[in-house]
């Protein structure tokens, strides 16, 4: 064990692999020293495990109705009670994690790279490219996210794919802004001039040298935004424009449970807990990542 640690922390690694692993290990080590980040990481890990192993963890079929067992309070049989159609809420929450995770991942996979590339291209080329790209970005940015997403879902029609697309469309502009601002701070630096002098094409300079410098702030930002994305998705579900019944989407579940909130509190509260927990998890993790990855904290000098 001591050998492995020494190998990872070696000041003069002997191969690319060792250098890369060493860096990752240092980040993990620093994260592990941050209690909130650890809590966040555990919650996010739980979410992922739950989503992957949903059929094993769930105690019942999430969409099987059983009208004889409507609105039962939490008990040993139904850990979180049942809803108005007699479905097991625990199982629905567990399967719902798959939808949440899909939304979050797809939004991150679509919005972050688009924003990153648009921002980096605008910042790198400047001039008209910048003005046009940032003009478009600002139009999107000037509208509140939920309303923008609402407008797109209304146009595309309700449904989970459309909700994902709508949220991604609402999310990329802020990433583009960040990426542009970061690109501007080092686009005139000498290390960029040096690769240009070696004959690198603009694509290569952006792809290999500029984007890697924006990614850590992007990871932080995306992680912190995850909570917002989950809430937006839940919001869309709540007003019936997101995932459609019988899909166990958390927002939609709250929406349906709201009618019984006074007498059967668990129907709306249980998925609500799930949303809060997961959002908090991403927030903590994002905060921790910021402490660890933010170059101003340690990397420079």
């Amino acid at each position: 064990m001591a050998n492995v640690t020494d190998w990872l922390l070696d000041d003069s690694p002997a191969s690319r692999m060792q250098a890369r692993l060493g860096r990752t290990y240092r980040i993990v080590l620093a994260l592990a020293k941050n209690p909130l980040a650890v809590v966040g990481a555990i919650i996010v890990a739980l979410l992922i495990v739950t989503a992957l192993a949903a059929p094993l963890i769930a105690t019942a079929d999430p969409i099987a109705q059983n009208l004889s067992q409507r609105l039962l309070p939490p008990s040993a049989d139904h850990w979180m009670g049942t809803d108005e159609l007699g479905r097991d809420i625990w199982s629905r929450v567990v399967f719902g994690s798959r939808i949440t995770l899909t939304i979050v991942l797809l939004v991150a996979v679509i919005a972050a790279p688009v924003g990153l590339v648009v921002g980096a291209v605008a910042g790198y080329f400047g001039g008209w490219t910048d003005r046009i790209l940032m003009g478009i970005t600002d139009i999107f940015l000037s509208m509140p996210k939920l309303i923008l997403a609402l407008a797109f879902v209304a146009a595309l029609g309700p449904g989970i794919q459309n909700a994902i697309i709508a949220i991604a469309i609402a999310a990329w502009p802020s990433y583009a802004r960040i990426a542009r601002a970061e690109t501007l701070t080092f686009r005139n630096s000498e290390f960029i001039a040096a690769v240009q002098l070696q004959g690198a094409s603009a694509t290569r300079v952006i792809g290999r040298h500029i984007l890697p410098l924006c990614t850590s702030s992007m990871i932080i930002r995306v992680t912190l935004d995850m909570a917002g994305i989950i809430l937006t998705a839940a919001g869309l579900g709540f007003i019936g424009l997101g995932a459609q019944p019988p899909l166990p989407e958390w927002g939609a579940m709250i929406s349906r449970g709201r009618t019984f909130i006074v007498d059967q509190w668990w129907v709306a509260t249980m998925p609500g807990f799930a949303i809060i927990l997961v959002s908090l998890g991403f927030c903590f993790l994002g905060d921790g990542l910021r402490d660890v990855l933010d170059p101003k904290q340690g990397e420079k000098q």
């Binding site: 690319r16 250098a19 630096s189 000498e190 290390f191 001039a193 040096a194 690769v195 040298h209 890697p212 410098l213 170059p295 990397e299 420079k300």
Partner: peptide, 10 residues
Amino acid sequence: GSLHPRKTID
């Protein structure tokens, strides 16, 4: 300022 801060010497 003339070396990329996230790239190894290699």
